[in-house]
Design a binder for these strands. Structure first.
Length: 481
RNA sequence: GGCGAGGUCGCCAAGUGGUAAGGCCGGGCUCUGCAAAAGCCCUAUCGCGGGUUCGAUUCCCGCCCUCGCCUCCA
């Protein structure tokens, strides 16, 4: 049984699928107008760990995540580069998918987009108007009447807060026709800057408001009521508040039984922004020489409700990514442990995710799994993995014991979605022939116990930019850095 | 101004009403011709001031500081 904090009730609650068998949930996905940044991926990675933890605990899931392919930014930027909206968002969708694959994220079972669901959204607006929750303005836009929905503000505790006028710096010049400032657009009348991106509706040409797509797609694919809805904390208000207002006013039912929100990633102690130069994409992380697995490790190193400070710059202010460097070391240790168990068990095959889903849970490494089930405590799970590893002496295990421990170990790794680096890493491979020749000479000198000569040859190799490391069989050559 | 989160070892980060997981870095040791690698070991009393309690880092009050959100940013 998995337990998770619920934003609506502000308590940790058991997750029980309402329909019985399958746990059905919706995650607000990315706006596809550029590459996602590592902050976006903190959210998606932890949602992925959430899903994996459920599935590896024997709970079937149905995961829907939308792609926002219709909003001010996608329209604006597609026109800026002179392509159709569809071509533009397809391009960034593909990039997003590639990044997700790199980060070992399970694909959602469904990934709907707003543009393909215009009729659903129009139907919902019509229903809201019928029921008195929406009104058309003189310019052909339609707004949701917030005052008509009694429960508005429950999720974000809006009743206890005051909105500071213009605090967000947003300009609302195109919404002068609203009855109340709190009302939000369900349908936005066509504007010249929208170009060809408009649709016909009973209220004239235009396009749906942003909040509506999720309500419409949730209803289409998950029904009037489903198990859990998730997104970044910034979506609590207004996005999720507005979704609730739209959906529940239509259906008269509770939209989602659980609200799962993920705290933002900070970079070097502050919010990520392009102007601060701390805005990182997966691509940039890889260009700096780090792997997606290393980034994933960093992203799960704090509990999802805590702010995570991603350290990019070291104490001297150099962009050396100490956090990723640390992750590399940690993953390397896990890989070595795995290699030792693998050897001991006599089975080199790594269990796949599907193997693990089919198999029953082992007692080994169970405490780490328990951490994940307890409000998705990823750092505690990692801590328990290392504690368990330290307590285990692989060389004293029987092959059967080693195999069992390894299955438990891999279940935790699979829940965290961690892929281990190859144990050997940095193999010799592509050293130039002259370096190899020197290394061979040195091996001969060593065999003859001619230490001065061996050290002299190592110095020569070092001068050529290579490092020679002895091991049982002979030596490895690595580029020196 | 309102709402919310947070201040735990050099860095990241768990946790608990009874004297604080783990990772990285650093230091020591073992092992190796040396080196590397690997393994082992070591390093905090939990922002400040009160209170409750036999006992608080963990509960309550006040203060200081940091960060996020406040209508289309995960």
């Amino acid at each position: 049984m998995m337990r998770l904090f619920d934003t609506m009730t502000r308590t940790v609650r058991d997750l029980v699928p309402r329909g019985g068998k399958t746990f059905r949930f919706y995650c607000c996905g990315p706006t596809v107008y550029g590459p996602a940044h590592i902050g976006n991926f903190r959210t998606f990675v932890l949602q992925d760990v959430f899903r994996r933890s459920l599935e590896l605990s024997g709970q079937a899931t149905f995961h829907v995540r939308n792609l926002t392919d219709l909003d001010d930014k996608t329209i604006r930027d597609s026109q800026a580069v002179g392509t159709t909206l569809r071509a533009f968002t397809d391009h960034w969708r593909d990039r997003f998918h590639a990044d997700c694959d790199q980060l070992n994220l399970l694909r959602p079972h469904l990934e709907p987009g707003a543009v393909d669901h215009i009729p659903h959204q129009i139907a919902m607006i019509a229903e809201l108007m019928e029921k008195g929750h929406a009104y058309a303005s003189s310019d052909g836009s339609v707004y949701y009447r917030v005052s008509s929905f009694k429960a508005y503000g429950r999720l974000s505790r809006l009743e206890h807060r005051e909105l500071k006028e213009g605090a967000s710096g947003a300009v609302v010049d195109d919404e002068y026709d609203k009855d109340s400032v709190a009302d939000f657009a369900l349908w936005k009348a066509r504007r010249p800057e929208d170009g060809e991106n408009y649709w016909e509706s009973p209220w004239g040409q235009g396009r749906p408001g942003w909040h509506l797509e999720c309500s419409a797609m949730c209803r289409e694919y998950l029904g009037d009521r489903f198990d859990l809805h998730s997104g970044g904390v910034d979506l609590v208000f207004p996005h999720h508040e507005n979704e609730i207002a739209q959906s529940e006013a239509c259906t008269g039912q509770v939209m989602a039984d659980h609200w799962f929100h993920l705290t933002h990633l900070l970079v070097d102690g502050g919010k990520m922004s392009k102007s601060l130069g701390n805005f990182y994409t997966l691509d940039q992380i890889e260009k700096a020489g780090f792997s997606p697995a290393e980034l994933r490790y960093v992203l799960i190193s704090a509990q999802y409700r805590q702010p995570l400070n991603f350290v990019a710059k070291d104490a001297e202010g150099n962009e050396s990514f100490p956090a990723l460097l640390g992750a590399r070391q940690a993953l390397q240790r896990l890989a070595k442990f795995d290699a030792a168990l693998s050897e001991r068990s006599g089975n080199p095959d790594t269990p796949t995710y599907d193997d693990l889903l089919a198999a029953s849970e082992e007692a080994s490494f169970q405490s780490a799994l328990e951490s994940l089930r307890n409000d998705l405590n990823t750092p505690e799970a990692l801590g328990r993995v290392f504690t368990t590893i330290k307590a285990l002496d692989a060389s004293s295990l029987s092959p059967e014991e080693a195999a069992r421990e390894r299955r438990g170990f891999h279940r935790v790794l699979a829940a965290l979605g961690l892929i281990l680096p190859a144990a050997g890493e940095g193999e010799s491979a592509a050293a130039p022939s002259e370096v190899i020749a020197l290394a061979e000479e040195r091996r001969a000198a060593k065999a003859a116990k001619n230490w001065p000569e061996a050290d002299r040859l190592r110095a020569e190799i070092t001068a050529l930019g290579w490092e020679v490391k002895d091991n049982r069989e002979g030596y490895d050559l690595c580029p020196k850095n």
